[in-house]
Computed example of a mutant assay.
Amino acid sequence: MDTHSELGEFLRVRRAALQPEDVGVLNYGIRRVPGLRREELAMLAGVSTTYYTRLEQGLSTNASESVINAIARALNLDDDERPHLFDLARPGKGRRRVPAKPDNARPGTLRLIQSMTSTPAVVLGRRSDVLAWNALGHRLVAGHLDYTAPERPSTRPNMTRMLFLDEHTRELYARWPEEARRAVASLRLVAGKSADDQELASLVGELTLKSQDFAKLWAKHPVENCMSGLKYMHHPEVGYLELNFEVLTPPDESGHRVLMYAADPGTPGAEALQLLQTAGNIESDARRTPAGRATR
């Protein structure tokens, strides 16, 4: 991805979202464009209009930390958007190289999620490829897919691709627009750190061409580090679930994440998860029973 154009797009989108009254700028009548003018943003940041214009046009990639911080303050960026601006404005500084070899979950991570029999868990790569899932995680998010699909890079599901292009996954989320924005915001954050990742660029290109919903959201440049929250699901087997989710990130350079789901005790969601686990256990027992032999 071209970080120069990404930087310009991010600055333009955020500048357009700011109204003069939001930042104490006097508004003199009708404006031809939404949001702040370039010269107003430059004034708030304490830089010249010419210099700020060069940043928006992607013509300057050596902005100092103080300048980037000043622009972040002027744009009212939050704690997720601010480091994203640094990634775009200073490409290469502190950026991890994306490994060329196929991504695989660590054996220790696999052992961990397989031991969590009552907690749905999914291991994701930096691009949201599914590297592994436990039995309950598979039944929760993609029971219509082969359980062994993550083991092969050629058939490995991608959570963002499924969300926008797979109708079963789309129907799974009771609040799909909320889930879609969260997925794009997370992908934007990754893209800012991985400008040299051709597979990520290919994924974004595919989704932009095949999904108008994705293209519209991507153009808005949302940025959010989604580490916890609520997911609202309507599962085809057990009905409506309201689940907490938590994302754990291993302290290595892999960019992997372990996504786990849990319901509050005594809630319909907890009962639904229990039903889903029970149904999965019955199915597994049936597969292990030799043909023609009765179970006791």
Rank of each mutant, 00 (worst) to 15 (best):
2 D>N: 09
6 E>R: 12
6 E>I: 08
10 F>T: 03
13 V>Q: 10
14 R>I: 06
15 R>P: 09
20 P>K: 02
20 P>W: 00
22 D>A: 14
25 V>N: 02
25 V>L: 06
26 L>K: 08
30 I>W: 13
31 R>N: 08
31 R>Q: 05
33 V>E: 09
36 L>N: 10
38 R>V: 03
38 R>A: 07
39 E>V: 04
43 M>G: 09
44 L>N: 09
44 L>F: 06
45 A>D: 01
45 A>G: 01
45 A>P: 05
48 S>T: 06
51 Y>C: 05
51 Y>H: 12
54 R>H: 15
59 L>E: 14
67 V>R: 00
71 I>V: 13
72 A>M: 06
77 L>T: 04
81 E>P: 12
84 H>F: 13
87 D>L: 11
90 R>G: 00
92 G>V: 08
97 R>Y: 00
99 P>V: 06
101 K>G: 08
108 G>Y: 01
110 L>T: 12
110 L>Q: 06
112 L>C: 07
112 L>R: 01
114 Q>P: 04
119 T>M: 15
121 A>W: 06
122 V>F: 03
126 R>H: 05
127 R>G: 07
129 D>G: 05
132 A>I: 05
136 L>E: 12
138 H>N: 11
140 L>M: 11
141 V>E: 11
142 A>N: 04
143 G>I: 12
144 H>M: 09
145 L>A: 13
148 T>D: 14
151 E>P: 02
152 R>N: 15
159 M>I: 09
166 D>F: 02
166 D>G: 01
170 R>N: 09
170 R>I: 04
178 E>T: 11
178 E>Q: 10
179 E>S: 09
180 A>C: 01
180 A>M: 01
183 A>V: 03
190 V>Y: 04
194 S>C: 13
199 E>G: 11
199 E>L: 10
205 G>I: 03
205 G>M: 00
208 T>A: 07
209 L>Q: 12
210 K>Y: 04
211 S>W: 00
212 Q>A: 14
215 A>Q: 14
215 A>Y: 00
217 L>P: 09
218 W>F: 08
219 A>I: 02
222 P>R: 01
223 V>K: 03
228 S>I: 14
233 M>N: 15
235 H>G: 03
245 F>G: 09
254 S>W: 03
258 V>L: 14
263 A>Y: 07
263 A>R: 13
264 D>M: 11
266 G>S: 06
268 P>G: 13
270 A>E: 13
274 Q>E: 14
275 L>H: 11
276 L>S: 02
277 Q>A: 15
277 Q>L: 08
278 T>S: 12
278 T>G: 07
279 A>H: 09
280 G>W: 05
286 A>Q: 15
287 R>G: 10
288 R>G: 09
290 P>G: 07
290 P>N: 02
292 G>W: 00
295 T>D: 12
296 R>E: 10
